[in-house]
Amino acid sequence: MLLQKRLILSTSSDSMVIAKLRSIMEIVANRVEMHKSIGEQRDNWNHLLLASINAITLAAASMTGIAAISATSGSVMALKVSSALLYLAATGMLLVMNKIQPSQLAEEHRNAARLFKHLHGEIETKLALCNPTIHDVSEAMDRVLALDRAYPLPLLGAMLDKFPKDVEPAAWWPQRSQRQVEGLGSKIKGNGWEAKLEKEMREIAGILRRKDIPEYLRLSKKALNFNKVLAISGPLLTGTAALGSASMGNTNGLWAVMLGVIGGALATVVYTLQHGGQVGMVFEMYRGNAGFFKLMVETIESNIRERYTERRENGEILEMKVALQLGRSLSELEHIAALSSENRGTKMKEFASKLF
């Protein structure tokens, strides 16, 4: 009778865990659709706002040129006022566009949709292939909340800083507990792990930390600095053009016309380069790549720090995943690890990843 009660309680507990995981999986599927829809909307913002600001700026520059050659004083005044108003409108719209960076927002939502879809697949696999535990439920919830923090849906009050002072890799996973333990000994084997594989994984993590992550952070900083220059230049040029068009007809009429026309033309070039070239998206892409490599390093190191091999991810599977994520075969992964070990004291030119 006691055994029967325990079996009933165990079955009830398993059913509750499965029900919780299914609920989380439904929420994750909903997040995927939300990020897809909002990402498409914000990508449309980028195209529509860019086309609108270009049209407004070019119309203002044309009005300034027409006003400069017009002979009727009444029409000159109307063109001057209209041109100045259009330039001011373009400046305001451009300031808003530079603040929210629609192309970067769209890239954030594309990344979030992909990562939530990956999480949905993992939960689905756990439900199909193994008996889930309450730990799986807790881990899934932590990952959902970490993704929500990394890629927030709302704009006001929660949007990521588009021009951060310090560039850090994107982080969309919960922080792992740091176990300060030693790895495998030379004679210990188990769960696909052996001393040679552990050394190889240490070398790969070291290459990623020394080469790949710093390289993509460097590229992120370059894209960010370029975006900052363009974000300042665009409104400055349209504001100068508005001042020039409003000043036409005074003693400095030639300079005013030149400021009004040339300033507008240059402004169009600047924000076409910034938002048409989606520089904010490029920054987010590089930052996301750095985060991808950082996650790989943490995954490798968390497995190596775990003393008990049965608690680690299977070594052969981890090696295969790392190789494919880096765009390499298993033999290439072994070669790059051996090359890193041989060139410990010198600068190694080759990166771990061949994918990006």
Results as ranks from 00 to 15, higher is better:
Val261Met: 12
Met348Trp: 08
Ala231Trp: 05
Thr91Pro: 02
Leu86Ala: 15
Ser62Tyr: 12
Asn252Gln: 15
Ala59Leu: 12
Ile188Val: 14
Ala112Met: 03
Asn111Asp: 03
Thr133Leu: 03
Arg287Gln: 15
Met141Lys: 13
Val167Glu: 10
Ala78Gln: 12
Ala60Asn: 11
Ser329Gly: 02
Ala146Gln: 05
Gly157Pro: 04
Cys130Val: 15
Ser83Gln: 06
Leu21Thr: 01
Gly190Val: 09
Arg149Gly: 00
Glu168His: 13
Ser302Tyr: 07
Thr268Ala: 14
Ala256Glu: 00
Arg149Glu: 08
Gln180Ala: 09
Leu160Gln: 08
Met1Asp: 15
Met25Lys: 11
Arg311Asn: 15
Thr272Met: 11
Leu156Gly: 01
Leu326Lys: 05
Thr72Cys: 04
Asn111Pro: 00
Arg311Glu: 10
Thr133Trp: 00
Ala112Ile: 00
Ala223Gly: 05
Met285Asn: 12
Pro174Glu: 06
Gly327Pro: 01
Ala90Trp: 02
Ser15Lys: 13
Ile188Phe: 07
Leu330Cys: 02
Lys228Gln: 13
Tyr286Gln: 15
Leu147Ser: 08
Ala241Pro: 01
Val261Glu: 06
Glu298Trp: 09
Ala68Phe: 15
Ser15Arg: 12
Leu145Asp: 08
Glu310Asn: 11
Val137Thr: 02
Ala51Cys: 02
Ser103Arg: 03
Ser177Pro: 03
Lys347Tyr: 07
Glu122Ile: 05
Gln4Met: 09
Val229Arg: 10
Thr57Ser: 11
Ser70Pro: 09
Leu95Met: 14
Val229Cys: 08
Ala242Cys: 12
Leu7Lys: 09
Val96Pro: 06
Val297Leu: 06
Asn98Val: 03
Asp14Lys: 13
Asn303Cys: 10
Ala89Phe: 11
Glu122Asn: 12
Ile66Thr: 10
Ala195His: 11
Leu48Lys: 14
Leu9Val: 03
Val96Trp: 15
Leu259Phe: 14
Ile100Pro: 04
Arg22Pro: 01
Ala128Thr: 13
Glu319Gln: 11
Leu79Ser: 04
Glu122Phe: 05
Glu107Gln: 10
Glu200Ile: 01
Lys199Met: 06
Gly192Val: 08
Arg287Lys: 15
Leu85Gln: 07
Gly244Tyr: 07
Arg179Met: 13
Leu326Arg: 02
Asn252Ile: 11
Ile304Cys: 04
Gly291Gln: 07
Gly244Cys: 07
Thr238Leu: 11
Arg307Thr: 07
Ala352Arg: 14
Met1Glu: 12
Ser186Thr: 04
Leu21Phe: 07
Leu259Val: 01
Lys211Ala: 01
Leu95Tyr: 06
Lys189His: 05
Ala241His: 04
Ser233Asn: 11
Tyr286Leu: 10
Leu115Asn: 05
Leu266Cys: 11
Met281Lys: 13
Ala19Met: 06
Ile18His: 04
Leu3Phe: 03
Gln41Ser: 05
Arg307Trp: 06
Ala323Tyr: 03
Gly315Pro: 14
Asn250Thr: 12
